[in-house]
């Protein structure tokens, strides 16, 4: 078994262990009750989303500096996973918000910014898929990946101010040790899963680029 496959199985196993701990082993949270269990997934997935978009930014910079297509392929692989993680974060967030706040959508600054990340990086992926020439595609994608990362913190800040005019930010959550450990496990598990899917997606992208460059007649 090669290393990448091992990484895949390890991350799946850790996610499974985390799910069992979060669903069945841990007692319900004293303040928030059972619904707290969703946070063991929601928070790590949100972290993976941020990690993925940060990777897109780094790879975009590397591409613009070195102009090697592999950086572009690594960037697009992370962008795809980032969009997936962002959508998951939103779904988990609304599922948590409904029992907790009583409404699906509270215009929480973090949630709202995450929702804005989806069209930003969908735009990134669509622009990429609509450009035929690999070098142009990589260049424009890298530019969007870079600009997106500049604008996102300010988008968050502005949404935060906008919201803070109406409602104070939510209070900090209680940190219980077992809760913290399961959360930590979630962080590790989902980060490994991201690394696995990212590298595997990159290998696929590299194969596809090779096919594209060798021309449609071949094979």
């Amino acid at each position: 078994m090669n290393k990448l496959t091992m990484l895949g199985w390890v991350s799946i196993a850790l996610i499974a262990v985390g799910s069992v701990l979060g669903l069945a082993v841990l007692p319900a949270d004293a303040l928030q009750g059972e619904v707290q269990r969703l946070l063991y997934v929601h928070v790590p997935v949100a972290w993976v989303m941020m990690l993925a978009f940060f990777v897109v930014f780094l790879m975009s910079i590397l591409y613009l500096v070195q102009r090697q297509l592999k950086w572009d392929l690594l960037a697009v692989s992370a962008a795809e996973l980032g969009v997936l993680a962002a959508v998951l974060t939103l779904i988990l967030g609304t599922l948590w918000g409904r029992p907790t706040w009583g409404i699906w959508w509270a215009w929480d600054p973090r949630v709202t910014t995450t929702a804005l990340l989806v069209p930003i990086y969908t735009g990134y992926l669509v622009v990429r898929s609509m450009t035929e020439d690999p070098d142009r595609r990589a260049r424009w994608a890298a530019v969007i990946g870079l600009i997106a990362f500049v604008q996102v913190p300010i988008v968050y800040l502005s949404v935060f101010w906008w919201r803070s005019l109406h409602q104070p930010p939510s209070s900090p959550q209680s940190m219980w040790s077992a809760y913290g450990l399961v959360m930590l496990l979630g962080f590790v598990a989902y980060t490994l899963a991201f690394a696995y899917l990212w590298l595997r997606r990159y290998r696929l992208a590299a194969t596809e680029l090779e096919l594209e460059l060798s021309g449609p007649e071949e094979g």
């Binding site: 804005l116 930003i120 669509v126 622009v127 530019v143 604008q151 988008v155 502005s158 906008w162």
Partner: peptide, 29 residues
């Protein structure tokens, strides 16, 4: 960035509107 793309009428707002959030919130506020 979008001028060469087939669906530029759609992609320009898709990229533009999220980037405009601070401008819109700031101006409106």
């Amino acid at each position: 960035l979008t001028v060469h793309l087939r669906a530029r009428e759609l992609l320009l707002p898709l990229l533009l509107f999220p980037a405009l959030v601070p401008v819109v919130l700031g101006s409106v506020g």
